[in-house]
Amino acid sequence: MKRIAVCPGSFDPITLGHLDIINRASTLFDKVIVLVSFNAAKKAAFTVGERVEMIYDVVKDLDNVVVDCNDGLLADYLKRTGATAIVKGLRAVSDFEYEFQMALANRKLYDGAETVFLTTTGENMFLSSSVVKQIAYFGGDISGFVPPQIHDFIKSRLLKSDDIKI
């Protein structure tokens, strides 16, 4: 039986912190699905299609990693794909409280859903898509925060963009 995990997130945009968690998950599971999820509470800077393409560009060399998107419940997606694990990265204790609630909710909706928490590396503890967007908006250097393959696209899109609310 294949061990399939889902790494869900908005990935708006994907960061080196996200990529670290994805890389590590790919060593633990037979297949990892990086899932761009729709979050009604967030106004995205990039379309779902753009986020999927950016992620694909940075994971295409990982043989057991695929990219997908979903606009429904994560528990339903797991059932449909046969995935049994949700992989979430934790930066701080504050992340744990929210992610623990989500893990319990997903388990209640689908008893085959286990959540695996991977702690971030020290250099990524502060890193989030929101931080990247704010730095890029003001023309700051984001090269240490995002994969090089998508750096220019992110920077050109976010620099003093009227679409971005910081």
Rank of each mutant, 00 (worst) to 15 (best):
N64H: 15
R91N: 10
C69P: 00
E97N: 05
T119F: 14
S37K: 07
A103G: 13
N70D: 11
K60D: 03
G139A: 05
I86T: 02
E53L: 02
A103N: 09
G82Y: 08
D152K: 15
D95S: 10
A85V: 09
Y137I: 07
S129E: 13
F145Y: 10
A45G: 15
G82F: 11
G72T: 07
M125H: 04
K43F: 00
V93G: 06
L74N: 06
I55V: 12
V146N: 08
T121E: 11
A83F: 06
I142N: 03
K79F: 06
E123H: 09
F38S: 05
I135N: 09
D61P: 02
L74C: 07
R80D: 12
I135V: 15
V66F: 03
F145H: 12
T115Q: 14
V52R: 08
Y56E: 15
A105M: 10
T119P: 15
A40H: 04
N124P: 13
D152L: 14
P147H: 05
A45Q: 04
P148W: 01
R107Q: 06
F100M: 12
V52H: 01
I55K: 04
D61V: 01
F46L: 06
Y77P: 02
N124S: 12
D63M: 10
F138C: 07
P147W: 09
A40T: 04
M102N: 13
G122D: 11
V36N: 00
